[in-house]
Each structure stands twice: as structure tokens, then as C-alpha cells.
């Protein structure tokens, strides 16, 4: 499909964007006294299935479902939608491997997925029928499963799957005709690598661990990043500064939550130009990602409120909105 074939979809998205939460809505929710008040506010904005559900997770899942259904209805190239679902798919793989190896059942650890939801993933892993997985997942699924069975090292398993996910996204993103998707994937890989490096530095991981965990990235020299992260926080911040990610270093200095917020805000900055694009699938992809960011932010607020976090602590964790 050419760019002009998305005019109908983009026009629908423009109307839908009116109902996205703004920074002001988020600020208002962060100032509310408890999670019930936040859920009431969201219900007034049309969130949930309209049945007055008080289960936060049910409301958030209903919103995720609505977004997925809308994007499917708009006939977006299935390859694009598949690429955007890679993180969920690889997450389900990790959850499946852990459930099988630890025999601890946790249905909520899985994302809903038509083809690779909990049941399908567990069946594939139990039968070791890795060929039933998408081609880009097969090799890592088998390797991570074997590693987990043999070593019981959940972290090793996680870094293998996470890196494979980023590499698969990078490969699929570069093939995409959508400039937004290419930029988004590039930003995602860079931000994920920075996040891994920052966490590894805090927990004192070795350079060997970092080399295994960091996915190759065009906008970031991951070899230098691994060396810096294995040295000290200061070296990591300097490295980020030299590679054009000064804000990441500043956020890292501020606090872990400020850093996590920078990571998500960076991705929102990548998609923001789509607000003024009238054709192409870019605005639809941007809307889908904006909704994911919105749901994630609401989840943070609801969790903070349910756990009695102060208003200030909640505000520190909320992300910038797309609109």
C-alpha cells in the first residue's frame, strides 16, 4: 500500500487522538488520593468495558484490546503490527520458559496474543516444537530453553531473549518502508541498550555480560558503552554524553525513576512528528505507540496510588504524553 492509501485511517486516528490523555490529565490523576478515584476518572473518559469494573488490570487490558482491534480494523500492513508486537511475543517466551522450568503458574505474566498466548507458548515449549514459533524466534527460544533447563539461570535466559528481540526488531525495522518505524526501532534499540548498560553498571556486571546483553545499534557504539558501563557510573555518563545522549546521563545522575522516564520520553519524541503528518501509516503507528505509552503511564499511576506513594513520587514516574 502507498502512503495515500492510509488517508482514511489517518483521518480516523485524528479523531481518536482527541480522546488520548494529555499531560494535564496525567498530572490530575497523579494528584488524586487513591487508585479508585483514578479508575473513576478513567471510567468517565470511556476507559474499560463500560461495566464499571474496579479491577485496574481488567481496565488496562480492555484498553489494550481496544487499541489492537482499532489498528487491525484500519488494515495496517500485518508485518508492521507484527513488528510492534515483538516485545510482547518475546516476553511471552520468557514467561513460558520460566513457568515450565519453575513449575510456578502465573497466567498474568503473559500478554494476550492470538497466536502465541500462554497456552500456545507453553505447548510449544513443552513439546519442544520450536518450529511452530516465528522464524526469528526459533533459534533463541531453543537456546534460552536449554540454558534455563541446564543452568536455572533466569537472568542469562532473559538477556538472550531480550537481545534476540532487539535484533529481530532492528532487522525487521530496517526492511520497513515506513520512516517512522525505522526511526522508532532504532530509538528502541538504542534506549534498550542504554537501559541495560545502566542497570548492569548499578549491579556491577562484568564486561562479558554486557557484551552478551547489548544488541548492535547504528546510533550507538555498544562496544564503548559496554566498556564504560563496566568501569563506573561516571564513565557511563561521559560515554553517553560523547555519543549524543547527554540527557540520558543527566537523568541517570538524577534518579533511577528519572532515567526510566527519559527512556520512555525519548521514544515518544521519536513519534511526535507524526502529529502533523496527513498521509502514510506513520500516524496510525504513532497512535498505537502513544496508546501503549498512555496505558503504561496509567498503570504506573494506579500502582503508585495502590501502594500509597506520595504525589511527588508518583509525578516523578509519569511519562510525557503524545498529545
Amino acid at each position: 500500500m502507498g502512503d495515500l492509501d492510509y488517508i482514511f485511517a489517518v483521518a480516523r486516528i485524528r479523531v481518536k487522538e482527541k480522546s488520548l490523555l494529555t499531560d494535564m490529565d496525567i498530572s490530575q490523576m497523579a494528584g488524586m488520593k487513591d487508585d479508585r478515584t483514578v479508575l473513576g476518572y478513567l471510567a468517565d473518559r470511556g476507559w474499560g468495558d463500560g461495566d464499571g469494573a474496579t479491577d485496574a488490570e481488567a481496565v488496562l487490558r480492555a484498553e489494550e484490546r481496544k487499541t489492537t482491534e482499532l489498528v487491525k480494523e484500519l488494515k495496517i500492513d500485518p508485518a508492521v503490527f507484527e513488528l510492534l508486537s515483538y516485545p510482547n511475543l518475546y516476553h511471552n517466551l520468557k514467561a513460558g520458559i520460566k513457568e515450565i522450568c519453575t513449575s510456578e503458574s502465573n497466567a498474568r505474566a503473559f500478554y494476550e496474543d492470538e497466536k502465541y498466548g500462554r497456552e500456545a507458548m507453553l505447548r510449544i515449549l513443552q513439546n519442544k516444537s520450536f518450529a511452530d514459533l516465528p522464524e526469528h524466534m526459533r533459534e533463541v527460544a531453543e537456546a534460552a530453553y536449554t540454558t534455563m533447563i541446564e543452568t536455572r539461570d533466569g537472568q542469562r535466559c532473559d538477556i538472550m531473549v531480550d537481545r534476540a528481540c532487539l535484533e529481530a526488531m532492528e532487522a525487521a525495522g530496517q526492511k520497513s518502508k515506513s520512516r517512522l518505524l525505522r526511526d522508532y526501532v532504532e530509538s528502541t534499540v538504542a534506549v534498550s541498550d542504554i537501559k541495560i548498560a545502566a542497570r548492569a553498571q548499578k549491579t556491577g556486571k562484568t564486561i562479558a555480560f554486557l557484551r552478551d546483553a547489548l544488541a548492535p545499534c547504528r546510533s550507538l557504539d555498544v562496544r564503548k558503552l559496554a566498556i564504560a558501563a563496566s568501569e563506573s557510573e561516571e564513565a557511563l555518563i561521559n560515554c553517553l554524553d560523547q555519543q549524543g545522549f547527554r540527557e540520558a546521563g543527566e537523568a541517570l545522575k538524577e534518579s533511577p525513576s528519572a532515567f526510566e522516564r527519559w527512556c520512555d520520553n525519548k521514544l515518544i519524541q521519536t513519534i511526535r512528528p507524526e502529529k502533523t503528518n496527513s498521509v502514510s501509516m506513520g500516524p496510525v503507528i504513532a497512535y498505537y505507540l502513544a496508546r501503549q505509552n498512555e496505558i503504561k503511564t496509567v498503570r504506573i499511576i494506579l500502582t503508585a496510588k495502590a501502594n500509597g506513594f506520595s504525589e511527588e513520587a508518583t509525578r516523578e514516574r509519569v511519562r510525557d504524553m503524545y498529545v
Binding site: L4, I7, F8, A9, V10, A11, R12, I13, R14, V15, K16, S278
Partner: peptide
């Protein structure tokens, strides 16, 4: 035709 597609998209929602 182009404008009609956009118009239909808006009317579908509003």
C-alpha cells in the same frame, strides 16, 4: 477522491 477518503474517516468516528 483523496479528500473524500479523509472525510469518510472523520465521519466514521464523528
Amino acid at each position: 477522491g483523496l479528500a473524500g477518503q479523509a472525510a469518510a474517516g472523520v465521519v466514521a468516528e464523528d
